[in-house]
């Protein structure tokens, strides 16, 4: 599946009001289920829109997790929610694919700013 890069980054941080700030360490296919379970605990009142801010503070995000973040239930297609990925510029994709495996380029632990 080919996805444009701007399809992953929806909206901008500046236009969000009271977002759910979700700080993430490394996400791979091996702990994606736990992320999904944690996100399902967020209860958004019916009829209201939610803003999600996924802050990437880990070292790696594999293709599976990138695709999950792209097509997960917090996508704005369902209830007009908005979602942005913060910190993705610190990661280097291992291919030209928009949802490719990404490795942190920043030495040390990005969780420091989380």
């Amino acid at each position: 599946m080919t996805v444009a890069a701007n399809a992953v980054l929806r909206g901008t941080v500046g236009e969000m009001k009271n977002p759910y700030k979700i700080y993430l360490s490394s996400v791979t296919c091996m702990n994606l289920v736990k992320l999904d379970a944690a996100l399902k605990k967020i209860v958004v009142p019916e009829g209201s829109k939610a803003n999600y801010m996924l802050i990437l503070a880990g070292k790696i995000y594999d293709h599976t997790s990138m695709e999950y973040m792209h097509t997960s239930r917090i996508e704005p297609s369902t209830a007009g929610n908005t979602c942005v990925l913060v910190g993705i510029e610190h990661f280097r994709g291992l291919s030209d694919h928009a949802l490719a495996y990404r490795v942190s380029q920043v030495p040390g632990n990005l969780a420091a700013f989380a």
């Binding site: 759910y20 700030k21 979700i22 360490s25 702990n31 992320l35 944690a38 880990g58």
Partner: peptide
């Protein structure tokens, strides 16, 4: 531990809901 553990460090900026 990071690869297999819960990837959510916390939800919120420390002033509200904390996981």
């Amino acid at each position: 531990k990071e690869l297999f553990g819960n990837p959510v460090i916390r939800i919120g900026d420390g002033r509200g809901l904390v996981m």
